[in-house]
């Protein structure tokens, strides 16, 4: 437990999310009772309130729902301009992210990649997906 990337990060509900992130795998919760996907995680399904929520590997494909290019150097560790985006995963839920390795606009298809962080698990970011 002394490795750098074992520094505690996240709350207990999201331990499976960050464990998967350490292996650069994006997981989101799926309800085995009603099929609904949700992100972030909860102890039960918000749609049908069943306990039978499990973390499943996501397709890692998303559509840009909204995007902004940040022009001011006020966030630690970020050099403007950089893109902050809200993406809609193929499974349905939306998540906050950055668009890296190119530009994207609303409606564009993007795919997950990972940004390493010093001392913390990698975070999912997205890049333009030119494949069909």
């Amino acid at each position: 437990m002394s490795e750098v990337n074992s520094i505690p990060f996240g709350d207990p509900t999201h331990a499976p999310f960050w464990d998967a992130a350490r292996n650069k795998t994006l997981v989101i919760q799926n309800c085995e009772a009603c099929g609904q996907y949700q992100f972030y995680g909860r102890p039960f399904c918000l749609q049908c309130h069943s306990d039978r929520v499990v973390w499943k590997k996501a397709l890692g494909i998303a559509t840009v729902y909204s995007i902004t290019s940040v022009r001011k150097p006020w966030a630690a560790g970020f050099e403007p301009p950089y893109s902050v985006a809200l993406v809609e995963l193929a499974e349905g839920p939306r998540m906050m992210t950055n668009i890296v390795n190119g530009n994207a606009k609303i409606g564009d298809r993007v795919r997950v990649t990972w940004r390493e962080r010093n001392g913390f698990p990698p975070v999912p970011v997205f890049e333009p997906d030119s494949s069909k």
Binding site: P8, F9, G10, D11, H14, W18, Y40, V70, A75, G77, F78, Y82, V84, M95, M96, T97, N98, R115, R117, F120, V123, V125
Partner: peptide, 14 residues
């Protein structure tokens, strides 16, 4: 870093 904001928004530099 235990909060939802710390986990899922702060890492993206808003």
């Amino acid at each position: 870093s235990y909060s939802l904001t710390g986990q899922f928004e702060q890492p993206y530099g808003l």
